[in-house]
Simulated scan of single mutants.
Amino acid sequence: MSRSEAPTIRLRADAGSPVRSAEVPVTAETRRPQRTSPYSMLGLTWRGEDPSSLRFRSRGASGWSTWRTAEILRDGPTAGTESRGRRGTEPMWVGPSDGVQVDVRGAGYRDLRLVLIDPGVLPSDASARAGAATASGRSSTRQVAKPTAAPRPPLLFRKAWGADPSWRNGSPTYNQGLRQVHVHHTASSNSYTRAQVPAILRGMYRYHTASLGWFDLGYNFVVDRFGRAWVGRSGGPDRPVRGAHTLGFNHNSVGIAVLGNFEATRPTQKVVTTVVRLAAWKLDLHRRHAGGTVAVTSKGSDRYAAGAQVRLPVIDGHRDTNETACPGEHLYDRLPGIRTRAQKRVDRFDPR
Rank of each mutant, 00 (worst) to 15 (best):
H184T: 02
V24G: 12
S301Q: 04
R35S: 01
V231I: 08
T321K: 06
R12N: 14
R233K: 04
T81H: 02
Q143M: 06
R47T: 11
R152W: 01
H182E: 06
W214V: 11
R202L: 06
S136V: 00
G48H: 06
L112Q: 10
G243I: 01
N175Y: 01
A15P: 03
R239M: 03
A128K: 08
L114S: 05
H286A: 14
D347M: 05
A13N: 14
R74Q: 10
T45F: 02
H251T: 10
E90Y: 03
V276E: 04
E329C: 05
W64S: 14
K270H: 10
P77G: 05
R311N: 12
V104F: 03
H330D: 08
G300S: 02
T8H: 11
R142D: 15
V254D: 12
R105T: 14
G43E: 04
S21N: 07
V121L: 07
R345Q: 14
F226V: 07
L112K: 04
A305R: 15
V19R: 08
V197T: 13
G137V: 06
P267A: 01
A128E: 02
G99A: 11
W93K: 10
L212W: 07
G203R: 00
R35C: 02
V258K: 08
K270L: 09
W281I: 04
S188T: 15
W161S: 11
P351E: 08
S37Y: 03
G80N: 08
P7I: 09
S189F: 02
T81D: 01
V275T: 13
S298I: 07
A325Q: 14
D98A: 00
D320Q: 09
D347P: 01
F56G: 07
L178M: 15
G137K: 00
T293R: 11
N190C: 08
W281D: 10
V314C: 00
G63S: 08
S140C: 10
S37K: 09
F249R: 04
S2G: 15
T274A: 12
G16I: 00
N322D: 10
T27D: 15
P119E: 03
S53Q: 15
D238W: 00
A22T: 09
A126E: 11
L331E: 08
T134G: 12
S253V: 07
T297M: 10
Y332V: 04
G243H: 04
P172L: 06
A130P: 14
Y174G: 12
L54C: 05
S139W: 04
T27G: 09
A342C: 05
A280T: 02
C326E: 09
P38A: 11
R239T: 02
R59P: 05
V222I: 03
R55T: 12
R266P: 12
R341V: 06
V223R: 06
M1E: 06
N175H: 08
T321V: 13
S97E: 00
F262V: 03
R334S: 05
D333T: 13
D14L: 14
A13Q: 15
V294W: 04
A160P: 13
V26W: 01
S53C: 07
